[in-house]
Structure formats: C-alpha cells, structure tokens
C-alpha cells in the first residue's frame, strides 16, 4: 500500500508556521478591525430602530425608484423589529457591509489586473476555482488562530469566500468590451489607462455590479455560517436554535436573513439596471 501523502499535515504545518510568525500582526489587525466593526455596529444602532427603518426604506426608494421595494423594506424590517431580532440583524448587516467592502476593494482591482495581464489571469483564475469549490466551513478553521474566535475571523473567512465573483465578473466585463471599440480607443492615441477609465470600466460597469451583487449575497450566506466561530448576529440566533432544537426561533431568524437578502438583492439589481441604461432613469 502507498503511504498516505501528508497533504493535511503539510498544510497544517504551513499554517502553524504562519500563525507562529505573523499572528502578532494579524492579532493586531484583528483588534483594529474589531473596534472598526463595533463602531459601524454602534453607529447603526445609535438611531432608534423605527427611524433607521424609515430612512432605509427612503434610501431604497431613492436608489431603485420602485415603491414596491420600499414597501418591502418597510414591512420586512418592521417584522424583524417585531420578532425582537433587531440587534442581531444590525450586527449581521454591519458584518456584511464590512466584508463586502473589503472583498470588493480587493476584488475589483484584482479583476482589472487579471483582465489587463495574461500572467496575472493565469495565476488568479485557478486560485479562484479552489476558493469557490472549497466548502465554506473549511475557511473558518485557519481564521481562528490568526484572528481569534469572533467577528474578525468571520469577516476574514467571509471576504475570502465572497471575493471570487467580484474578481471574475470584473475581469469578464472588461474582456467583453468589443475589440473594435478597443481598437478605436487605440487609433485615437489613448493610453492604456485612458482606455480603461474612459471605455472599459464604464462598459463593464453592469457586469461588475452583477459581481458585487453576488459578493454581497455570498457574504450574507457566509456571515450566517460564520456564527459557528462566534460571529453572532442572525446566524448566531440560528445556531442557538439548532443547539436547543427550537424550531420556531430558528425559522424566525431564518426569515430575518431572507428579508435582509431580498432587500439587498433588489437594491443592487436595480442599481445595476440603471447603469446599463443611464438615459432611461
């Protein structure tokens, strides 16, 4: 029999090595992040819940120009408040916001890089395949020694899990710009940067936004899973309900997650549709 190839032990050793030598840095970062997160959460909780709900509904109305979406927001968030899940929801929203912002701010530049350079693309794409097919739970384990149990580890694993669509669709959107338009930009003497900013990014914007939309949705789903390593929020409520076999409480938290997901999806989709037809607003 072939001896077992120590894939797992090797990776473990590598992670342990990293933990030993860089965890002081990641722990410091973790502390920083922790305070950032609680600041966002605190800011969101500073407003009275009803005012927050009305303001959010108005914001969705302004962003989507659809009364239906605004009403959905109003009623949905009202139901969450009524079920007594308000604090958990705000905590989840804060986590999703911070994770998404981080994922997008790494993902879009990486996507642009991958679109512009074939070597970058050849390196990034297989890594993305791995990132997307690896079961989400696995990211949770190494996150703990680097960042400790809690929200920062959750954000970290969420960013890794949610980033691929932003990278992929940014890259795709830029590469889908018709070649005759690129040639035209060249023929008029554009620099590579001008071509990117004046032609490729505007044309890729709807695709990029679709990627951001997916990133938000993945972040939301991961934030729920990350409750297992102490992310709290709505996921935490679900987790608690599982451990105590409280079916009702579990569904209540689940419905809360669905409502947040629906609101986020509608808002993002309509933003995307608007950039596609900027004259039809």
């Amino acid at each position: 029999m072939l001896p077992k190839i120590p894939v797992g032990r090797g990776l473990e050793a590598a992670v342990n090595f990293l933990v030993e030598h860089v965890s002081w840095l990641t722990r410091a970062f973790s502390a920083l992040m922790e305070s950032g997160l609680s600041a966002v959460e605190g800011a969101l909780l500073a407003l009275p819940a009803w005012l927050f709900i009305v303001l959010t509904a108005l914001l969705t109305l302004f962003l989507t120009r659809r009364r239906g979406t605004a009403v959905l927001t109003l009623l949905g968030l009202g139901l969450i408040l009524n079920m007594g899940l308000w604090k958990a929801t705000v905590s989840t929203i804060a986590l999703v916001l911070v994770s998404t912002l981080s994922a997008v701010s790494f993902g879009i530049p990486l996507g642009i890089g991958a679109a512009m350079s074939a070597p970058v693309r050849r390196t990034v794409m297989p890594v993305l395949d791995v990132m997307q097919t690896m079961p989400a739970f696995v990211y949770l384990i190494p996150a703990i020694p680097f960042f400790g149990l809690g929200k920062v580890a959750a954000v970290f694993s969420t960013v890794i899990f949610a980033m691929p669509p932003s990278i992929r669709l940014t890259c795709l959107g830029i590469r889908q710009v018709p070649p005759d338009l690129k040639e035209c930009a060249e023929a008029f003497g554009s620099t590579r940067w001008q071509r990117l900013v004046k032609l490729e990014l505007p044309l890729a914007a709807p695709t990029i936004l679709a990627g951001v939309n997916q990133t938000v949705m993945l972040a939301l789903s991961m934030v729920v899973i990350a409750a297992m390593i102490g992310a709290k929020g709505l996921g935490g409520e679900v987790w608690k309900a599982i451990q105590r076999l409280q079916m009702g409480a579990g569904f209540e938290a689940g419905i809360g997650i669905v409502i947040v997901a629906m609101i986020l999806d509608r808002v993002l989709q309509h933003c995307g549709a608007r950039t596609k037809n900027p004259k039809n607003t």
């Binding site: 005759d180 338009l181 040639e183 035209c184 008029f188 004046k198 032609l199 505007p202 044309l203």
Partner: peptide, 10 residues
Amino acid sequence: AMVFQNFALF
C-alpha cells in the same frame, strides 16, 4: 484619424 466599418461609437 480613423473611421471604422462598424462605426465603433462608444
């Protein structure tokens, strides 16, 4: 300056 077959307008 160049003019293209398929117009190539942005």
